[in-house]
Amino acid sequence: MQITVNAQTHEISTETLDAALAELGFTSPAIATALNGQFVPASAREATVLTAGDRLEVLAPMQGG
């Protein structure tokens, strides 16, 4: 199915959030996720099932003021 990851369209073959992150190459432990604008804790990724058209944001620590 197609989902949007950080504003880019991706075709994924996995169904849960944690599997999709692995498939998409997000291997860093220093990431946080939000699905369709809602925060998804790391502990809930395995149980979070994706559906086509979902908007996933994968954020990481960055410089800030």
Binding site: N6, A7, G25, F26, T27, S28, P29, A30, I31, A32, E57, V58, L59, A60, P61, M62, Q63, G64, G65
Partner: peptide, 21 residues
């Protein structure tokens, strides 16, 4: 120190910055 959150890049630059900080 203040920090921010931005979209993770494929090279994982966020983790390196976090380690440095």
């Amino acid at each position: 120190v203040t920090v921010s959150l931005r979209r993770e890049t494929s090279d994982g630059t966020g983790a390196g910055f976090w380690d440095m900080l």
